[in-house]
């Protein structure tokens, strides 16, 4: 019993690390733009399919595939930013969200037209047996995922808290009007944050796909929903909140799947979000979001 609990906790933390990365990307965009990017997951899926296509046609190493995933996601993100967010700055939040959803449909149809099979194999991060520690096992790819997530968080923290660009991002998040008056070029910050968030999403997408060893077009919706859930649970626009929300969602899912099965696992995650929203818990209603 205790062994199961510990094993589930380990599994939950490793998938939670991927959720945390997805939530970080979402929350970065939300923090500066005050808009949810619904095609975030679709852009990640597009990046992963670019890598899959390269792998099928030319065969490529793991690192190169990771680089292509990130590059594809950033490219897709740039397209989304130009068409959905740049025209609606200071304008309608609903228009930006619906436009980003429209591009989600484009990405989904594009990948299914170019690669029509429902499921493609993706080179796995690690093929061997999982590591064993006494009664517990730890998948090597889960360990890599966790390590990469920590490294990405550290890099992001360094960028946001130790560079001039990071200072500008935080200033825009806190007080856009004052930041603009202080001479910060807002469009410049928006574009770079979008690229940064897309790159983080690309890393998360690569890790998820490579640890599953396969890819389907469902990845887009999956990333968007998990990223949104983790971001909301941790508090909109809060970076530490995104990490905590992602890990909490991973743990919640791992334990509820073990005790109640996969359908109830998803039900419980949404129920928790609904109840927390309805109860208006203070950490979810951050200043930057209201």
């Amino acid at each position: 019993m205790l062994a199961d609990l510990i094993q589930n906790t380990l599994d939950g933390l490793s998938i939670g690390a991927a959720y945390a990365l997805l939530a970080l990307g979402f929350t970065l965009i939300f923090g500066v733009l005050r808009r949810a990017n619904l095609s975030y997951g679709a852009a990640i899926m597009f990046g992963c399919y670019c890598a899959t296509w390269t792998h099928l046609n030319f065969g490529a190493g793991l690192l190169l595939l990771a680089a292509i995933t990130v590059a594809g996601t950033v490219l897709a993100g740039a397209y989304v930013e130009r068409l959905c967010f740049a025209p609606h700055r200071g304008g309608s939040m609903i228009a930006a969200m619906v436009a980003s959803f429209a591009l989600w449909m484009q990405f989904e149809e594009l990948v299914t037209l170019v690669m029509p099979t429902h499921l493609y194999a993706f080179p796995a991060l690690y093929e061997g047996a999982p590591l064993a520690f006494g009664p517990y096992t730890l998948r090597v790819d889960a360990l890599v995922m966790f390590g990469a997530a920590i490294a990405a968080c550290a890099l992001l923290w360094g960028t946001l808290y130790r560079t001039r660009f990071g200072l500008a991002v935080r200033a825009v998040t806190e007080q856009p009007a004052a930041a603009s008056l202080a001479g910060i070029n807002l469009p410049w910050v928006y574009v770079r944050v979008f690229a940064l968030a897309s790159a983080i999403g690309g890393v998360a997408g690569y890790l998820v796909v490579a640890s599953h060893g396969q890819i389907t077009p469902m990845l887009g919706m999956w990333s968007t929903l998990k990223g949104l859930l983790a971001m909301m649970l941790g508090g909109l626009g809060s970076l530490p909140g995104a990490v905590v929300g992602g890990l909490a969602l991973g743990l919640l899912e791992a334990h509820s799947q073990w005790f109640l099965g996969p359908q109830l696992r998803d039900l419980i995650a949404y129920l928790l979000l609904f109840v927390l929203l309805a109860a208006r818990v203070p950490w979810m209603h951050t200043r930057s979001a209201s």
């Binding site: 068409l83 959905c84 025209p87 609606h88 619906v98 429209a102 449909m105």
Partner: peptide, 19 residues
């Protein structure tokens, strides 16, 4: 190409007519 055409049209349309 329905989704590609429709998706692009929606995004473009909203640029000019956000409501």
């Amino acid at each position: 190409y329905r989704m590609i055409v429709f998706g692009g049209l929606v995004a473009l349309l909203l640029v000019f007519r956000p409501r």
